[in-house]
Design a protein around this nucleic acid. Structure first.
Lengths: 255, 255
DNA sequence: CGTACCCTTGAAAAAAATCAACTTAAGTGG
DNA sequence: CCACTTAAGTTGATTTTTTTCAAGGGTACG
């Protein structure tokens, strides 16, 4: 995958990039890096990452820990997401960022990205949208944790991750290949691993999903969405040219 | 309160505003409006507010509802917060915004604010920081809902709101005058009103807080923070020149 | 002085966590 | 290639937390 093309597509999916912005983009020094599973990219309380990474492959999570050792995953980042837009203009990190799988990322110097964001309207706009969509997802997760029961939460997060993965061309429709352990799924949904297990089996028993190892297949999308109280509006996919039902990627010509 | 001064202070608290930005700010047409309790400022699924409001007085909440009628408050906005930075670059609202008390707000045209954010580095930077801090608060709330028990959640949100209120000069130290019903407190913490009541009495019984009507006084700040697993780093107050312990406001001369 | 709207309290039910095996799967090194 | 080891998944029994249900009590406001 051509990195410049991905960046331009990502930043340009909300509107055309003028020549000056494209030139500025092409001139950013970026480096493609491999990141091993478990690597701490940002540490809570420390400085933000010196480089802001665009995820090319693999999965990263943002997480926080409580005083008594609990862990809450507060975001999942996949292909096309910028790691650490969350700290772009802050001097102290307020959460951890960690590679959940082996990753490939394109690194851009943080300060250079700041300057780009402020100097080029279209790039600024694109980064704004990424940040605002991420905040919107956090609000939906708040609703998920605060007001939905365990089974609904699990169905919801499966629905969301499947759609997001499809929308960036990661998995075939209705398949979820995130290699999450049930403990990690618990850290996303605020449940214990034991209870996650029971809810997964409940969804499987009812014919909504099938499982093989850690890969999940959605057998009845409408039913799963209903079980998860899932309405994808909050992902703002339509505004990015993506079909919010199927996750079909943006037509590059559009706009 | 002079509105222009408040806006300039808000936007300038992260760094000096150059003359051009100040001039641009002075030239924004804004209107001060009274907003009645219960007014729906933004409706989920509809268009974002045509005007972006800066809160001068009163309290607004962001909330979402679930399919079975549950309600989750996902953010609380007080003096100095911009309503609807969350939708500044989005075309569809993903949550509701509602006046919880009578409010006074300064309205700025949404599209004009966009242009300002993109054309003036310092204004853009200030709005970025506001958005990023709000996202940071959402992540902390996620941790609160996902991994802390009921009593801890209540202690945490009281600690947070007291500090935020102090930091904008809303209440004397260690007093919380947000006129929340226990039901609304439940909508913030993902609990039932009955359980909120029990937890409040527990905190009161243990001498951490005192209550009179709906006003809460913090009797033992350190103990309340401990009970709420509260560490204010995530509010990024220090980066705004505010003392993260006491909430003392920024010294205007600084930076 | 009534009438909402909250707050408070107790008892019972439900949901989820905890505890404690046991099973399966996936390496790893002999 | 197999035995061994470790991490993760599964299951049942029990305990804890929180919700639900229901009934009073207080208070502000027309």
């Amino acid at each position: 995958m051509d990195v410049h093309a991905l960046i331009a597509a990502k930043l340009g999916s909300y509107g055309p990039l003028p020549e000056a912005a494209q030139r500025a983009l092409r001139e950013i020094p970026f480096t493609v890096r491999e990141v091993a599973t478990g690597t701490q990219i940002v540490r809570d309380g420390g400085p933000p990452a010196r480089e802001c990474s665009l995820v090319l492959d693999g999965v990263a999570i943002r997480h926080k820990t409580t005083g008594d050792g609990g862990r809450q995953i507060v975001a999942v980042e996949i292909r096309g997401d910028f790691l650490d837009v969350a700290h772009l203009f802050l001097d102290v990190a307020d959460h951890n960022v960690e590679a959940l799988t082996p990753m490939r990322v394109a690194n851009v110097d943080r300060l250079k990205l700041r300057v780009l964001a402020l100097d080029h309207r279209e790039i600024g706009r694109a980064l704004w949208i990424q940040a605002l969509v991420e905040a919107s997802i956090a609000r939906e997760w708040l609703t998920n944790l605060g007001r939905r029961d365990a089974r609904t939460r699990i169905a919801h997060i499966i629905s969301e991750m499947a759609l997001r993965a499809e929308s960036v061309g990661l998995s075939p429709p209705d398949t979820l290949n995130l290699p999450w352990t049930q403990e990690q799924l618990g850290d996303v949904t605020g449940l214990t691993p034991v209870h996650v297990n029971r809810m997964l089996r409940s969804l499987e028993h009812d014919g909504l999903i099938a499982r093989e190892g850690r890969s999940i297949t959605i057998l009845d999308r409408a039913a799963l969405h209903a079980a998860g109280d899932f309405a994808p509006l909050y992902l703002h996919l339509a505004e990015q040219g993506i079909d919010p039902e199927t996750g079909d990627p943006p037509r590059q010509a559009a706009r």
